[in-house]
Measured scan of single mutants.
Amino acid sequence: NQASVVANQLIPINVALTLVMMRSEVVTPVGIPAEDIPRLVSMQVNRAVPLGTTLMPDMVKGYA
């Protein structure tokens, strides 16, 4: 099963993503693939993302 990107903490809106904010985990439904974590660094989410939430492509500005 493919690992997805999961919030490692509350990720506020309009804050640049850092490695420490994200972890990889096998979850259902599948979200952004874990291998895209380096690409996500410095991008921003378009809504607050609670701890443990799977990041979906539509949550990250400029990802999709």
Rank of each mutant, 00 (worst) to 15 (best):
N1T: 15
N1M: 15
N1W: 09
N1C: 07
N1E: 12
N1I: 13
Q2H: 15
Q2T: 14
Q2D: 10
Q2I: 14
A3V: 08
A3E: 13
A3K: 13
S4M: 02
S4N: 01
S4E: 00
S4D: 01
V5W: 02
V5N: 02
V5G: 00
V5M: 01
V6N: 01
V6T: 06
V6E: 01
V6G: 01
A7Y: 02
A7L: 03
A7K: 02
A7C: 04
N8A: 09
N8M: 07
N8F: 04
N8H: 09
N8P: 02
Q9P: 00
Q9E: 14
Q9H: 07
Q9D: 10
Q9A: 15
L10Q: 12
L10C: 07
L10T: 11
L10M: 15
L10F: 13
L10D: 13
I11N: 00
I11E: 00
I11F: 02
I11K: 01
P12L: 05
P12A: 07
P12N: 13
I13D: 13
I13Y: 13
I13L: 14
I13Q: 15
I13K: 15
I13G: 09
I13H: 10
N14G: 15
N14W: 08
N14V: 03
N14Q: 08
N14A: 06
N14C: 05
N14L: 05
V15H: 13
V15G: 10
V15S: 14
V15D: 07
A16N: 10
A16P: 11
A16I: 12
A16S: 13
A16W: 08
A16F: 08
L17I: 13
L17K: 00
L17R: 00
L17P: 00
L17F: 03
L17H: 00
T18P: 00
T18V: 05
T18I: 06
T18E: 12
T18M: 08
L19H: 10
V20W: 15
V20H: 11
V20P: 15
V20E: 14
V20D: 15
V20K: 12
V20Y: 15
V20Q: 14
V20T: 13
M21Q: 04
M21L: 04
M21T: 02
M21K: 01
M21H: 08
M22H: 01
M22K: 00
M22F: 09
M22S: 00
R23P: 02
R23Y: 07
R23K: 11
R23F: 04
R23G: 07
R23W: 03
R23C: 05
S24G: 15
S24Y: 07
S24E: 10
S24H: 08
E25T: 07
E25W: 06
V26K: 12
V26C: 05
V26H: 11
V27K: 07
V27N: 03
V27G: 03
V27P: 00
T28A: 11
T28K: 13
T28I: 14
T28H: 12
P29C: 04
P29L: 04
P29A: 04
P29E: 07
P29N: 04
V30W: 09
V30G: 09
V30N: 11
V30M: 14
G31T: 02
G31S: 01
G31K: 01
I32G: 00
I32W: 02
P33H: 09
P33G: 06
P33Q: 06
P33T: 08
P33L: 08
P33I: 09
A34P: 06
A34V: 07
A34E: 07
A34K: 06
E35Q: 15
E35C: 05
E35F: 10
E35D: 11
E35T: 15
D36L: 11
D36H: 15
D36G: 05
D36W: 10
D36K: 12
D36V: 09
D36A: 15
D36Q: 14
D36E: 14
I37T: 09
I37R: 08
I37Y: 02
I37L: 11
P38M: 10
P38S: 13
P38F: 10
P38Y: 13
R39E: 06
R39C: 06
R39K: 15
R39Q: 11
R39T: 12
R39I: 07
L40I: 12
L40Y: 03
L40S: 00
L40T: 00
L40H: 00
L40C: 04
V41F: 05
V41R: 06
V41Y: 04
S42I: 03
S42M: 11
S42L: 07
S42H: 12
S42V: 03
M43F: 10
M43D: 03
Q44L: 10
Q44P: 11
Q44I: 10
Q44H: 14
Q44K: 13
Q44S: 11
V45F: 03
V45Y: 03
V45E: 01
V45M: 10
N46I: 12
N46F: 10
N46V: 12
N46T: 11
R47N: 08
R47W: 06
R47M: 15
R47Y: 09
A48Q: 15
A48E: 15
V49E: 02
V49N: 02
V49S: 02
P50T: 08
P50R: 09
P50D: 10
L51F: 12
L51H: 10
L51A: 15
L51I: 13
G52T: 02
G52L: 03
G52S: 06
G52C: 04
G52I: 03
G52V: 03
T53W: 10
T53N: 07
T53V: 13
T53P: 02
T53L: 08
T53F: 09
T53C: 07
T54N: 00
T54C: 05
T54Q: 03
T54G: 02
L55Y: 02
L55C: 03
L55T: 02
L55V: 09
L55S: 00
L55M: 12
M56W: 05
M56E: 06
P57H: 11
P57D: 06
D58R: 10
D58V: 10
D58F: 14
D58I: 10
D58K: 08
D58Y: 11
D58E: 14
M59R: 03
M59S: 05
M59V: 09
M59C: 04
V60T: 00
V60D: 02
V60H: 01
V60F: 05
V60R: 00
K61D: 13
K61T: 14
K61H: 15
K61G: 08
K61V: 11
K61R: 15
K61A: 14
K61Y: 12
G62F: 10
G62N: 11
G62L: 09
G62S: 08
G62W: 07
G62P: 05
G62A: 11
G62C: 07
Y63N: 04
Y63C: 04
Y63E: 03
Y63L: 07
Y63A: 04
Y63T: 03
Y63Q: 04
A64M: 11
A64Y: 08
A64L: 15
A64G: 11
A64H: 14
A64N: 13
